[in-house]
Computed example of a mutant assay.
Amino acid sequence: MVGPERAEHQESQLRRALPDRLCRTASAGVAELTEYRAGLSTEAEIITERAASEWRPGIGMLIDRFGVTWVLEVAA
Score class of each variant (00 low, 15 high):
14 L>Y: 09
62 L>Y: 03
41 S>K: 09
65 R>I: 06
45 E>A: 04
23 C>Q: 09
55 W>G: 02
58 G>W: 04
30 V>N: 12
40 L>I: 07
36 Y>R: 11
9 H>S: 09
9 H>R: 10
25 T>Q: 06
54 E>L: 10
75 A>F: 15
45 E>G: 02
24 R>D: 07
34 T>D: 09
26 A>M: 11
28 A>F: 11
34 T>E: 02
40 L>N: 00
7 A>P: 09
11 E>P: 08
1 M>C: 12
69 T>K: 07
44 A>R: 08
10 Q>H: 12
3 G>P: 14
43 E>K: 08
73 E>M: 14
58 G>H: 03
17 A>F: 07
8 E>W: 04
23 C>T: 13
16 R>S: 13
17 A>K: 00
70 W>Q: 01
41 S>N: 01
69 T>D: 06
35 E>I: 03
1 M>R: 07
51 A>V: 08
19 P>F: 14
51 A>I: 11
52 A>G: 13
16 R>D: 09
46 I>W: 08
65 R>V: 06
59 I>V: 14
64 D>Y: 04
42 T>Y: 15
71 V>P: 01
60 G>V: 02
31 A>M: 04
76 A>S: 11
63 I>W: 06
22 L>S: 01
75 A>S: 15
36 Y>P: 06
11 E>I: 11
70 W>N: 00
47 I>L: 00
36 Y>H: 14
46 I>M: 03
48 T>E: 00
15 R>C: 06
9 H>E: 13
40 L>M: 10
2 V>M: 10
37 R>Y: 10
37 R>E: 03
69 T>P: 05
15 R>I: 09
5 E>Q: 09
12 S>M: 14
50 R>A: 10
67 G>P: 01
60 G>K: 05
17 A>D: 07
15 R>Y: 05
55 W>M: 01
49 E>R: 15
29 G>H: 00
45 E>D: 12
64 D>S: 05
74 V>G: 01
12 S>P: 05
5 E>W: 09
26 A>W: 07
53 S>L: 11
28 A>T: 14
46 I>Y: 00
52 A>H: 09
72 L>P: 06
41 S>R: 13
51 A>K: 09
25 T>C: 08
75 A>N: 12
22 L>F: 04
17 A>M: 02
43 E>V: 08
15 R>N: 04
19 P>V: 13
18 L>K: 10
63 I>D: 00
10 Q>Y: 14
75 A>H: 15
48 T>K: 02
26 A>F: 11
48 T>A: 02
73 E>W: 08
25 T>R: 05
34 T>P: 02
40 L>E: 01
35 E>A: 09
64 D>N: 01
33 L>K: 06
10 Q>C: 11
44 A>S: 00
17 A>S: 02
29 G>F: 10
15 R>G: 07
35 E>Y: 03
44 A>Q: 02
65 R>Q: 02
